[in-house]
Simulated scan of single mutants.
Amino acid sequence: MSFNIKLIGGSGFIGTRLFRRFQSNARMSVRIFDKNQSSAYPESVVIGDVRSLRDLRDNISDGDTIINLAAEHRDDVSPLTLYDEVNVGGAQNICTVARERGVDRIIFTSTVAVYGFAPIGTDESGKIAPFNNYGRTKYEAEQIFKAWQSEAPTERTLVIIRPTVVFGEQNRGNVYNLLRQIASGRFLMVGSGENRKSMAYVENVAAFIEYSLSFKPGVHVFNFIDKPDFTMNQLVISVKKMLGRPEKIGFRVPFAFGFAIGKGFDLVAALTGKRFSISSIRIKKFCANSVYNTAIDKTGFVPPVPLERALEQTIRNEFIEQHNDEPLFFSE
């Protein structure tokens, strides 16, 4: 089966990896629709905004498959109305045009943030309790896509993928910032380090999106996690070992003290308008358990890259080898 794919938000981190996979598949005809130019595939991009019905109508064709990666997701988005305009309004616009163009397949990347600070082992049936606007608006978008699918349930396919924190080469998000601190020798552990974190390697996420193109009509909701889940202590020790550094963690900052420091940075940011890599919410996220389960195994999907090898590849690319000509992607 062949696919004509509109990759909405495809100029970003996941979209670039996904486009690369599609390039090697003769069954795929792919165009990127994004408000930003693609640094990797500029010749394949149409500039447009999901907030514009006209832009979407001009670029979505009859029978296209839509993969929606577009989102406002940073902790420091301003104004806050952008979360609703892009994540919720964008979903409404995509569904409007999908109805007009006879689209019967949409893949939507949501987030585990819909669960908030979830109990360990939360799966796809977990309680929805987002703690921020990003998680709230992503869940609202899910409901909009589900309403679209329910209008023709035996004909339309909706895949909702909720990844945990995604990392990989060329990404400048929270995982990279942690790895960079460890590599520089300036890392300080906040809290006991026994909290566990689920992670997802970008190539595996892209591979699952490609795999999900084969799903039959219906609603398919999956968390995306690469196992096993590291404790922060295990993660830091593993990274130091890969870098050839002493595996001792050293001085630890109590959580209460670290959180107070984060609050101080919040105040300075509010007064000056500057962005800082330290904030109270980031300290809280760092010290929280973030462990999820997934039903993906039941689909037959096998991640192409084991998690430990993914971590090794990322560390080698970022801190050992020289890749100065590669584009970078900045995210949370």
Rank of each mutant, 00 (worst) to 15 (best):
S290C: 05
E169H: 06
D266R: 03
S331N: 14
R162W: 05
V305M: 05
H73L: 13
S192Y: 12
G89D: 14
G15C: 02
I209D: 00
S61P: 01
N25T: 11
G273P: 05
Y41S: 12
G262E: 06
E308V: 11
N293R: 09
N171I: 03
V50C: 06
F167L: 09
L179I: 12
P119A: 10
G116Y: 11
Q170C: 13
K248G: 14
L328E: 15
A200Q: 01
Y292A: 05
T157W: 01
Q92A: 10
T299S: 02
F208D: 01
D49S: 10
A269P: 05
P217H: 08
N289F: 03
I283Y: 00
E210N: 07
A269K: 11
P306T: 13
D34Q: 07
S38P: 10
G121M: 05
K285T: 08
L267M: 10
P119W: 06
G244Y: 01
R99E: 13
N195T: 13
I107S: 02
N204C: 02
Y292R: 03
D84E: 15
D58P: 06
G102M: 09
S238G: 04
L18Y: 00
D55I: 11
T164R: 01
V46E: 09
E140F: 05
N68V: 09
A270K: 11
F286L: 15
S198G: 10
A141Y: 09
D55W: 13
D226R: 02
L307V: 07
L179S: 10
L271C: 13
I94V: 12
